[in-house]
């Protein structure tokens, strides 16, 4: 009887650690900046969705996906935004969304987590390494990340004398 009692507790504890905790996205921003003629052009997307699940694994994240509507791009110049939507750049008719999916993660010291995401832009898939920061704030989980991509890897715009290829992306999200 005593042994079966301990077995039940053991099974309960095990199942507790395996249960994933689904979080609800509160807010997310995806900012980017790229140099044009030596000066930073800042922009952001404001239609962003993400989902996250935590678990007691090495990095605590079981699932982390995000997608955004490219049509929600803002760079401060509306005509430029329109141009970025056409097939010279994002081609939103064919590729209305950008999405990314966590493939691998490993906790580092403190709040840092090493991750690898699959990033898909215009049907081009790339695995990219992203150092992520995750922290708790009261009952929220806050994540943030900064990384760099090459726009030409994804067919966003062609060669340009003024526009740099490197785009710095900055993501921040809070989950509850």
């Amino acid at each position: 009887m005593k042994s079966s009692y301990f077995t039940l507790i053991f099974i309960f504890l095990c199942s507790c650690s395996a249960i994933a905790q689904k979080l609800v996205l509160e807010e997310a921003t995806v900012n980017f900046k790229v140099k044009n003629a030596g000066f930073w052009v800042n922009g952001y997307f404001d239609d962003v969705k993400a989902e996250m699940e935590l678990q007691q694994s090495n990095c605590k994240i079981k699932k982390l996906n995000g997608k955004l509507k490219v049509a929600s791009i803002h760079t401060g110049i509306s005509l430029r935004d329109e141009h970025l939507k056409n097939d010279d750049y994002f081609d939103i008719e064919l590729y209305p969304e950008i999405w990314m999916e966590l493939l691998y993660c490993e906790a580092q010291k403190g709040k840092s987590i090493d991750t690898v995401f699959k990033l898909v832009i215009k049907n081009v898939e790339r695995e990219i390494h992203i150092p992520l920061t995750m922290e708790r704030d009261l009952n929220r989980i806050l994540i943030s990340a900064d990384f760099e991509i090459n726009r030409q890897d994804f067919g966003i715009g062609g060669d340009s004398l003024t526009l740099a290829n490197e785009v710095l992306v900055s993501i921040a999200a809070s989950f509850k």
Partner: peptide
């Protein structure tokens, strides 16, 4: 010159010909 770049004028009116 800084405003020219920041406002995106430089994209169409790109140096050295100030036209792309």
């Amino acid at each position: 010159q800084r405003i020219f770049a920041k406002e995106g004028c430089v994209t169409c009116h790109a140096p050295p010909y100030f036209s792309n």
